[in-house]
Every structure is written in C-alpha cells, then in structure tokens.
Nucleic acid binder design. Structure first.
Lengths: 143, 143
DNA sequence: TATTGTCCCTACCAGTTTAATATGGTATAT
DNA sequence: ATATACCATATTAAACTGGTAGGGACAATA
C-alpha cells in the first residue's frame, strides 16, 4: 500500500514537461539530471507515457519529449492509473464469511473513491504554475 | 499501491473475534475454516496482532484468541498500520528539483491523511454490529 | 500422569514485483 | 557522416508476497 518510485518519477517527468512549456521538446538527459532519475529508467517511463498518449516524442539531434495534451487536462489519477494499473485495489474477498467480506469491500471502495477523487482534482497545470511561482519569486513592487 | 491479502485476513480475523464476543477464546482453526484463511498463515497474523497488543492468546486445550481491547477502541487505521507499516507512503523525494518534490510530497500527504481519516473512523465494534444484524435478520413483527 | 489440542516460534521457499542496467537498434537534425 | 536523440527487448539483484513445514510450550482433561 505505497506509491512506487516509478510513479513518482513519472510525476516528476510530466511536471518537468509542464513547467518547461509545450513549445519545444525537452530532452530526457536534461530531466534525468535535474530530477536525479536513472536515465534508462526514465526512458522506459517516457515510452509508457507515450503509449498512453500523454506525451509526444520527436527524434533526432534536437528531439525530445513534450506533452501531447494541455496540462489542464492531465490529472494525477489518470497518470497513476497508467503506472500502477488501479488506485488502491484489494485482494478479492471471495471465500469465507460473505457478510464480513461485503462490509470490508464497501470500506475499501470508499477509501479508493476518496483517493481517486483527491488525485483527480490536481492537474499538471496547477503543479506547473505553483512551481514556476516558487522558482521566480514575485517581483518586489515596493522597491 | 494495493491492499495485501495479509491485511485483509487480519481484518477478517479481528472482525471474527469482535463478532464472537470477548467472553471466551475463539480458536484459530474455527476462524480459518469459516473465513477460508490458510491456517498457518493465520497463526502468523495472530502472533503479530498479539505483539501489537490488540489480541490475547490463551494456551491449552480450551485456548484460543480474544480481543485484548474493547472493539470500540480498535479502528482500521490502527490495524493497517500494524500490518503494512504505514498507510500510503511514497518513496522519498530527495534528490532532484526540490520545488517539485515538495509539491508532490504535499499532495501525497493530503491523500494519506484522507485515507487515514477514513479508516480511523471505522471501528471493529461497528463492523461487528452490522455483521450481527445481517446474520440474524430482524424479527418479523407483523406475523 | 499421559494425552491431546491449543498457542507459539523459527525457518524456509517459490513466485512475483521493483528498480534498475545492458545492449542494440532506428530516426533525424546539423 | 555522425552525434544525439528516441525506441525496444533482455537480464538481473533485491525485496516482497503468500504461503508451508516442523517443532516446541502449555494447559485442560481423561
């Protein structure tokens, strides 16, 4: 019941693309260095994200990756579903006392829904905006 | 990011004890059969729960297990913390872009809090009561 | 007191997942 | 050309999961 580092890397990768903007491709080498992600691992993640359609790759010397979708339309639940299959599933409760099994199933379903709701309310656009604001501190108007 | 069957078995085990009541010890064999849990696996779980202080074991021919604490005082967050260490942790975000790392940490912390809150609001007493109500359907007063 | 049925404990193991690493392609801008 | 990127597959060491096995310790009862 924990978040894998693959998911974490994926979030960082997509956040990086969102922050850099969608104009020109960003290279994996650069992101790997900035976020301290094993380069070859990051490559796999990039391919996965491409397969899911969240990202577009351009080859060649000046190539790289960029978001294939506006960051406002990418929420974290969507991402985590791509990296981990499903959010907070639990082993099937089949055999055994059916009544207790049903009660527990309901409880877990409620938690799953809560997490899903929470994660789907956060978009890459938000993250990018907050990050940019922190990186370039607000200008001091009062001189 | 899923719930292990160990945790599920643990919930069933404790629920069984709560349902049966705290008067006399209940034997693992009985619970294992009723809930279709591998007996030897259940033994390990019982020992773990004993170590955490949620359960008391009596040896001997008429022995068994019973709750060491009133079921009203046992919430599911407490249990899951014993079986899985922590609820929804994520790999440490150390190296790399500190700003993005911080933002992601916050997001996960919020989800963790939500799940923890949800699970800690459910006690074994509730589960036992609901289960008992379903097992012995309400008497038909209208004859 | 001998037996029996329980809890208790330790060790082991097979399969899967995780987090990478390695190798070698293919495509393209300069 | 060739360097630099993307793309794809194979391998692997370590950890985790979900058990199994074999005993001991202990208490009730016959």
């Amino acid at each position: 019941m924990k978040v894998s580092s693959k998911t974490l890397y994926t979030f960082q990768f997509l956040s990086a693309l969102a922050i850099k903007g969608r104009k020109t491709p960003v290279q994996l080498r650069e992101i790997a260095a900035e976020y301290d992600i094993p380069f070859k691992f990051l490559e796999q993640i990039a391919i996965l994200m491409k397969g899911v359609g969240l990202v577009r790759g351009t080859r060649g010397k000046t190539g790289g990756y960029q978001l294939a979708v506006p960051p406002e339309n990418i929420d974290l639940a969507r991402v985590i579903r791509a990296t981990e299959g499903e959010v907070l599933p639990c082993a099937d409760i089949d055999g055994g006392n059916a009544i207790v099994g049903e009660l527990l199933s309901e409880i877990f379903a409620r938690q799953r829904a809560a997490v899903e709701r929470g994660l789907s309310s956060v978009t890459l656009a938000e993250i990018a905006e907050k990050a940019r604001r922190k990186m370039e501190p607000a200008p001091m108007f009062y001189v």
